[in-house]
C-alpha cells in the first residue's frame, strides 16, 4: 500500500501549529488595535470547483462561516462553471486560495503554491472511474465504447478528462476520434447522471465523487457500473496564489490541517466524507504530470 512519507511527517507539525496560532489570534483579538482590525476586515477569497459536490449550498455556507470564525476574517467562496475560470482567477491574483484538480495544478505549478491535500479513506489519493450504464452488459472495458457517446466532466479535470485521454493514447487510440461523440458536463456529478439516464454511453468520473454520491443518491449511482479503475493519483489539492501573503498562507494552512481535530471542522469533514486535509509534496502529482505531458504531445 502506498504511503507518502512527507504526509506523515507534516501531519505531526500540522497538529501543533493551529493551537499555537489560535492563542496568538486570541491575544491579538483581545488587544483589538485598529491596524490589526483593518487587516482582518479584508476578505479572504477561496475558489471552489466541482472536485467535490459543490452544489450543496447550505453546506458551503456553513463551511464558509467556519472559515470566517477560524480566520477571524470575512471569507468569500467563489464558484465558477469550470476549472479554468477558477484557475485563471487564482493565477491573476483575484482569489487567494482554491480547491482545484491535480491536472491544472501540475500545469501551473510554478504559479501556484500547494497548501494541502484531502485525506480520503485515510489516503491522499483517488482514482478515475470509467463508468457505463449498469444495464449495458456488453461493455466491459474502454475499448467497447468505440464510436459511442462519452461524457467528460471538465477539460481541466484529471480523473474526468486527462486519464481517459491518456488511457486511450496508451492503447494506441486517437482520443479525438475514438468516440462517436463527446461532451463536457462541467461536474463529476453530472457525468454520473449523464450515464445513468442514458444521455452518454460512458463517462469518466472522480472516484471520490462517485463513492460519495453512492451514499447520497444510491438510485442514481447504482444505474452506473465501473468498467475501469485508474491507478491512484494525488487527490485534488488546495492551492494558493503564488504571491500570497505569507502570514495568511500559513494561517490558512494551519486551519485547514487542524480541521479534523476541531469539533465543527470534523463535522464538516464528515459531510465531505473526508478524513481531513494534510500537507503534501508536489511530487504527489508527478504521475499526473507525466500523463499531461504525454497527452499534450498529441
Amino acid at each position: 500500500m502506498y504511503r507518502c512519507p512527507h504526509y506523515h511527517r507534516r501531519m505531526d507539525t500540522s497538529q501543533l501549529n493551529p493551537l499555537r496560532r489560535r492563542c496568538l489570534l486570541a491575544t491579538l483579538a483581545a488587544l483589538a488595535t485598529p491596524s490589526l482590525l483593518a487587516r482582518t476586515e479584508s476578505v479572504v477569497r477561496i475558489g471552489l470547483t466541482p472536485v467535490f459536490l459543490d452544489d450543496l449550498a447550505s453546506f458551503i455556507a456553513r463551511w464558509r462561516r467556519w472559515f470566517e470564525k477560524k480566520l477571524d476574517q470575512p471569507v468569500s467562496f467563489i464558484q465558477r462553471g469550470n476549472y479554468r475560470e477558477v484557475v485563471n482567477l487564482l493565477r491573476t491574483g483575484k482569489i487567494d486560495f482554491a480547491w482545484i484538480c491535480g491536472y491544472p495544478y501540475v500545469r501551473y505549478r510554478h504559479e501556484l503554491r500547494l497548501v494541502g491535500v484531502p485525506l480520503w479513506k485515510g489516503r491522499p489519493t483517488y482514482r478515475s472511474y470509467l463508468i457505463v450504464h449498469s444495464q449495458a452488459g456488453g461493455q466491459r472495458s474502454l475499448g467497447d465504447l468505440r464510436g459511442k457517446v462519452f461524457a467528460y466532466s471538465d477539460p481541466d479535470s484529471n480523473s474526468g478528462f486527462l486519464y481517459p485521454q491518456y488511457s486511450l493514447l496508451s492503447s494506441g487510440e486517437n482520443p479525438a476520434r475514438f468516440f462517436g461523440r463527446t461532451f463536457f458536463t462541467w461536474s463529476h456529478r453530472n457525468v454520473v447522471e449523464s450515464v445513468a439516464v442514458g444521455l452518454a454511453d460512458g463517462g469518466a468520473v472522480d472516484s471520490y465523487v462517485w463513492e460519495t454520491l453512492l451514499e447520497l443518491h444510491p438510485d442514481l449511482v447504482q444505474a452506473t457500473r465501473i468498467i475501469e479503475r485508474s491507478p491512484e493519483f494525488g487527490h485534488t489539492p488546495f492551492v494558493a496564489r503564488a504571491r500570497i501573503d505569507a502570514a495568511l498562507f500559513s494561517r490558512f494552512r494551519d486551519i485547514l490541517y487542524g480541521m479534523a481535530s476541531d469539533l465543527e471542522g470534523a463535522a464538516l469533514l464528515r459531510e465531505l466524507r473526508l478524513d481531513g486535509f494534510a500537507a503534501a509534496e508536489p511530487r504527489l502529482y508527478d504521475s499526473i504530470a507525466r500523463m499531461a505531458k504525454l497527452v499534450g504531445q498529441y
Binding site: A151, R181, F183, N190, S194, L199
Partner: peptide, 9 residues
C-alpha cells in the same frame, strides 16, 4: 457551443 449537457439540463 455544442454543449449537450447544458441542453439536457
Amino acid at each position: 457551443h455544442d454543449d449537450i449537457w447544458r441542453a439536457y439540463e
